[in-house]
């Protein structure tokens, strides 16, 4: 897996993978403007295991969506891997996401009609990876998440933990610069959640991919390199943990 992930573009470790400058996101609900984020500026360095924490409705998911280029800020600039996202049109943003960003969702969000193998292979098809390499990387990633035996199974034949492992493999298989995970353990029991966290920590260490989580799971928070506390749409605290 490490070999497969090493193919990813090697960034300048001194640079930041995410730079948010005075971000605001206001949702318009009829005549009412609802501010979800207010003047958030933050920088996340490469190769870190970062957490966006806060209560439900605090704005973590909105922030994660902005970082993931699937939403646009009302004000401010989002820079990801040195790219100002505002400069990308929809197609360019899609291509950018396909190459640089992996997503892990709370509800797994696997394509139900594809097998575990095909779900993991999907992102490689989007970036035009040759067939032989695709197969090699997909199998390696399934092996890495311990699902080589379940490769042919469809999502409805997998447990919650297995589904999330497939989702992790899918997010990592293309060797993205950054993996965004929104409450990845919320739908899992404690033991499974712990094993998933362990798995993510391990693959992050091997792949040196930047992980950014939105969570309020204390289990997950204890693994964080950086913690950003969001409250009422504002970044109120930034903590850097000293880790090896």
């Amino acid at each position: 897996m490490a070999q497969a992930l090493a193919r990813a573009r090697a960034p300048d470790p001194s640079a930041a993978v995410v730079r948010l400058h005075q971000i605001a996101r206001i949702y318009q609900l009829g005549a009412i403007a609802v501010p979800a984020l207010k003047d958030v500026s933050l920088t996340i360095p490469y190769h870190r295991f970062s957490m966006l924490i806060g209560a439900s409705g605090s704005g973590k998911t909105t922030l994660l969506n902005l970082i993931g280029c699937i939403d646009a800020p009302t004000h401010g600039t989002v820079e990801l891997c040195g790219q100002n996202i505002a400069e990308l049109d929809d197609n360019a943003a899609s291509a950018f996401r396909a190459r640089n960003i992996g997503f892990i969702f709370q509800n797994f969000s696997l394509v139900p009609v594809l097998s575990a193998y095909e779900n993991v292979e999907y992102p490689l098809l989007l970036i035009g990876t040759p067939a032989a390499e695709r197969r090699e990387r997909t199998l390696a990633m399934l092996q890495a998440v311990g699902l080589a035996e379940q490769a042919a199974q469809r999502p409805n034949e997998l447990s919650g933990g297995q589904k999330q492992r497939v989702a992790i493999a899918r997010a990592l298989v293309k060797g993205p610069q950054v993996v965004l995970a929104d409450e990845p353990t919320a739908n899992l029991d404690t033991a499974t959640g712990a094993s998933i966290i362990e798995l993510m920590r391990r693959v992050q260490a091997e792949s040196r991919t930047t992980f950014i989580f939105a969570t309020h799971d204390p289990q997950l928070i204890s693994h964080a390199d950086e913690i950003f506390l969001i409250r009422d749409g504002k970044l109120v605290e930034h903590t850097t943990e000293a880790r090896g």
Binding site: G68, N91, S94, R99, S109, L110, I127
Partner: peptide
């Protein structure tokens, strides 16, 4: 939404 986030275009 999932596949669009993964990079599938409109």
């Amino acid at each position: 939404g999932t596949v669009r986030a993964m990079g599938v275009r409109r």
